[in-house]
Amino acid sequence: HNLTITQGKLFFHYNPKLCLSEIHKMEEVSGTKGRQERNDIALKTNGDQASCENELLKFSYIRTSFDKILLRWEPYWPPDFRDLLGFMLFYKEAPYQNVTEFDGQDACGSNSWTVVDIDPPLRSNDPKSQNHPGWLMRGLKPWTQYAIFVKTLVTFSDERRTYGAKSDIIYVQTDATNPSVPLDPISVSNSSSQIILKWKPPSDPNGNITHYLVFWERQAEDSELFELDYCLKGLKLPSRTWSPPFESEDSQKHNQSEYEDSAGECCSCPKTDSQILKELEESSFRKTFEDYLHNVVFVPRKTSSGTGAEDPRPSRKRRSLGDVGNVTVAVPTVAAFPNTSSTSVPTSPEEHRPFEKVVNKESLVISGLRHFTGYRIELQACNQDTPEERCSVAAYVSARTMPEAKADDIVGPVTHEIFENNVVHLMWQEPKEPNGLIVLYEVSYRRYGDEELHLCVSRKHFALERGCRLRGLSPGNYSVRIRATSLAGNGSWTEPTYFYVTDYLDVPSNIA
């Protein structure tokens, strides 16, 4: 807008934040220059609390790290170098490059900038070799853009010569660093050979998330399962459950009422301010606690030095998902009996873990797994792929695949051998790939016309006998059925096997 004052003059007093240069501009645009008398524009009460600059400061050096910015700028000295009290560095987070010096300023003089007072450097006698002032900004957020400017702080001049310097606002972004852990990993099994893994992005990506790394490792069953005799009275049979499938998407929606109208769909109840505040506090606490764990609990591995020492970490090797089922080394339970199943799973520490690289999504279907087997899954978020990966501390989750139908069934015939004193040795093959492992066998036998009897055969007993022995049988026709019990439950009964026990007292003698 054009402003013209045809008559009258300007009068400025007691404006401590208004620089004289701005008042002189007002004289020019209003056409009143030359009308004012000496005392109409006070030299001592206008701009006496402001830094009124008329020179431009330029930054000469900028260096960044993930949490620091090192700045240096060209030296500046007023005509009387004693008038320079120091520099004021202003900075704040700036997602967009549209910041002005006066953003967030209120009537009390406060604003949204963080201000650092910096002492002037030592003055050199040689004007050509003056030290460049600077400042190291610490405690910054990774991968965050900051708006920065600097200006001088000078003393009051009796001659009211307006001098000083100020830089333009520059924008500097800190470097990326390792992201925080992925949030809320959930693993479920939808079949006997697959596990579905879902997660949420890290709360602090500290860069642009480029991919996720998912490692999985087959877990050995508890050692007590191999040692305890679950045929003993009072000892509860062990059981394991597989990871249940995901709930429906509708039930997972946030901010939804727990109660549904019987007449149909209901609208979600909005969260109160107290609920939102509580969630923010919980989120802040979780982030602080995660940072504490990362800094205190997890110790970084030592990389190899120039002395030739090897990095103890196993090298990563990509495998196809079809090879995942046989990740671990199978060892027989008892070496003397080769027909026992290889369900003991000690994992070799030198073995390469299978892994998958996930790009542009937060889910993965891990296939080719062994049925009813526990897996430990390790999830890392990465925001750099080359020249070397920059990934987060791992988040861990466990899951067990679903049982395989008929995996616990005894394959092959049940054979028998009759000894003296009416002892019958029953023999059968253990299931080759049971659900988890076989903890015991149930032997059901009966003599024709009598009630059915049951015998429990422990895992250890089966390994020693290759089956079991029935003792003290009365003469007669017998039928026997056997079924295995694994961590997933009972298998199917075998087809009945028949044998006849004679009275050993009636056996004919070869003595003449």
Rank of each mutant, 00 (worst) to 15 (best):
S509H: 15
R319I: 06
I276D: 01
S320R: 14
P475K: 11
L369H: 03
M402G: 01
P244A: 13
E378R: 08
G489F: 06
Q252G: 10
Q252N: 02
E224I: 03
P238R: 04
S239D: 12
G374T: 05
K361G: 13
S458G: 15
H371V: 07
P508W: 08
W428F: 07
R466M: 13
A399D: 01
W242L: 06
V358G: 07
P332L: 11
K406R: 12
L369Q: 04
E420R: 04
L237M: 09
Y478R: 00
Y212P: 00
T307Q: 06
R286L: 03
P205F: 10
V329K: 07
D273H: 15
G476S: 02
P238E: 03
M402I: 09
M402F: 02
G436M: 15
G325D: 15
P332D: 09
P434W: 02
G476K: 00
K302E: 07
S444M: 08
K432H: 08
A381K: 00
V365H: 13
S305I: 12
R400A: 08
V365W: 11
R286W: 04
R390V: 08
T210S: 02
N255M: 10
L277A: 13
N421C: 11
Y498C: 06
L232N: 15
L470G: 00
K361D: 04
A335L: 13
P349V: 09
Y504F: 03
P431L: 06
G476E: 01
T340A: 07
D204T: 02
L464G: 11
T288A: 04
E260I: 09
G322E: 07
S509W: 11
S305G: 02
E258N: 15
G472C: 08
N206A: 15
A463E: 06
T415P: 04
P475T: 08
C266M: 02
T347S: 12
E350S: 15
L228P: 14
Y259H: 06
R390L: 07
G325V: 09
V424Q: 04
Q380G: 15
F215Q: 12
H461N: 07
E265N: 15
S262I: 15
C468T: 02
L379I: 13
F289G: 02
Y504S: 05
T502L: 12
E433I: 15
S492C: 15
W216I: 09
K432T: 06
L453D: 03
T386R: 08
Q384S: 11
T401V: 09
M402N: 15
I366S: 01
E420V: 10
T347L: 12
E451P: 15
P354V: 06
R469W: 05
E417T: 10
P300M: 07
V329H: 11
R316I: 15
K460W: 11
R471P: 06
S474W: 12
E452L: 13
V423S: 04
P238H: 03
Y259T: 12
V327K: 05
T494L: 04
I276T: 07
R481N: 12
Y448V: 10
R301T: 09
P244N: 13
S305W: 04
F289C: 01
I418Y: 15
Q256K: 12
S458Y: 14
E495R: 08
V365S: 08
A381Y: 01
E442C: 03
L232M: 08
L235T: 05
S274M: 02
T373A: 14
I418D: 05
I377V: 10
T241S: 06
P332F: 04
S315V: 09
F285G: 02
I511F: 06
E430M: 04
S344L: 09
D222S: 07
E281A: 09
I366L: 11
N339F: 10
N422Y: 15
A336K: 06
L470P: 01
Q252C: 12
L280N: 06
K302N: 14
N255F: 07
P270F: 09
S257D: 07
Y445K: 02
D250N: 10
V297L: 09
A395S: 10
S262F: 14
L280V: 15
S367Q: 10
T210R: 10
V397N: 13
E417S: 11
T497N: 05
T373Q: 08
T401R: 00
N339T: 12
L235I: 13
Y230N: 07
L470V: 13
S283K: 01
R390G: 05
A484S: 06
K406W: 07
V299S: 03
V331D: 12
T241N: 12
E389M: 15
T386V: 12
F462P: 03
L453R: 03
S320I: 11
P431M: 02
K278H: 02
N295S: 08
E378P: 03
V414K: 01
R316E: 08
R318A: 13
Q256D: 11
T386N: 15
R483Y: 03
K302Q: 14
F372A: 03
P413G: 13
D323F: 03
S398V: 07
T401N: 04
P387I: 13
P349K: 07
F462C: 02
S341G: 09
V358A: 15
F246D: 08
T347F: 08
Q275W: 04
N326H: 12
S474G: 11
R318M: 11
A263R: 14
V359T: 07
V299A: 14
V443G: 01
S363C: 14
P354N: 12
S342V: 14
E281F: 06
Y212K: 00
A336H: 10
V327E: 07
S223A: 12
N360A: 14
S243T: 09
Y292P: 01
D506W: 12
E249Y: 06
S284H: 12
P475R: 11
T415R: 12
D291N: 15
F285V: 04
S486A: 14
V480K: 01
E465Y: 14
S398Y: 15
A399V: 04
A405R: 13
I209D: 05
E247A: 11
S486Y: 02
F289W: 04
